[in-house]
Structure formats: structure tokens, C-alpha cells
């Protein structure tokens, strides 16, 4: 499964890079979104995969069961998901504003209409 997930991460990254290399600004946004997924899954897979044993101490116990999932990468990813959303919102509005200001959503044209 680890190998399969590694391939998935690679594929998601490749798709994100393809979108980031596109000329339309809206596709940049999609690329950013996929890049976030890819990075989260990268950390998630690298931390090791554990099935059906979340990092939660059972009620009444003092310690989590042995072999539970590593909580630190999960905490990292959780905030990363929310921050990705905030950054994506900012990028989306930037794209919208760039279009309003210059009338184009082509990065190469935006380059020449810089003001």
C-alpha cells in the first residue's frame, strides 16, 4: 500500500505541476489546490501508515493502544489543510483582481500589462 500511495503522491504532484505550468490563471488555482493535497499526502505517507488505530486514548485508559498512528504529522497536516484553504482564497481573489485590473487571465499577457 505504501508503494501505491507513493505513486499516487507522485501523480498528484505531476498533475499539480502541469496545472502550475499552464497559462491561464484559473488553472494556477487548481494547481495550487492539488499541490496542497499532494504535500499533505506526502507527509502522511512518510509518517507511516496505520489502519484503524487513531491516536486517541481510549476512555478510561491513560495511554493510547500500542501501534497507534503517529499524531504529530496529523497535527501538522490538519493546520496545513486550513492554511491551504486560506492561501487558496487569497490567491483566488488575487486572480480575480488581476483579471478586473487588466482584463486578462493569461499569465504571459499579465506579464506585459504590469503596472
Amino acid at each position: 500500500m505504501f508503494v501505491i500511495l507513493a505513486l499516487l503522491v507522485g501523480a498528484l504532484y505531476a498533475a499539480a505541476f502541469c496545472l502550475l505550468l499552464a497559462r491561464t490563471t484559473t488553472r494556477l488555482l487548481f494547481g495550487l489546490l492539488l499541490l496542497g493535497h499532494a504535500a499533505n499526502l506526502l507527509i502522511f505517507s512518510a509518517a507511516g501508515l496505520v489502519r484503524a488505530s487513531p491516536a486517541i486514548v481510549p476512555s478510561g485508559a491513560e495511554r493510547p493502544p500500542p501501534g497507534h498512528a503517529d499524531p504529530i504529522p496529523q497535527a501538522l497536516i490538519l493546520t496545513a489543510i486550513v492554511i491551504s484553504f486560506a492561501v487558496l482564497a487569497f490567491a483566488a481573489v488575487l486572480v480575480q483582481r488581476a483579471h478586473q485590473a487588466s482584463g486578462t487571465n493569461d499569465t504571459e499577457e499579465l506579464r506585459t500589462t504590469e503596472t
Binding site: A6, V9, G10, A11, Y13, A14, F17, L21, L42
Partner: peptide
């Protein structure tokens, strides 16, 4: 893009 994706898979 594909090559970079492959690199990332390799990193995992």
C-alpha cells in the same frame, strides 16, 4: 511536470 512528479514519488 511528470519527471518532477516521479521525483516526489521517489522521495516518498
Amino acid at each position: 511536470a511528470l519527471a518532477a512528479g516521479a521525483v516526489m514519488a521517489g522521495i516518498v
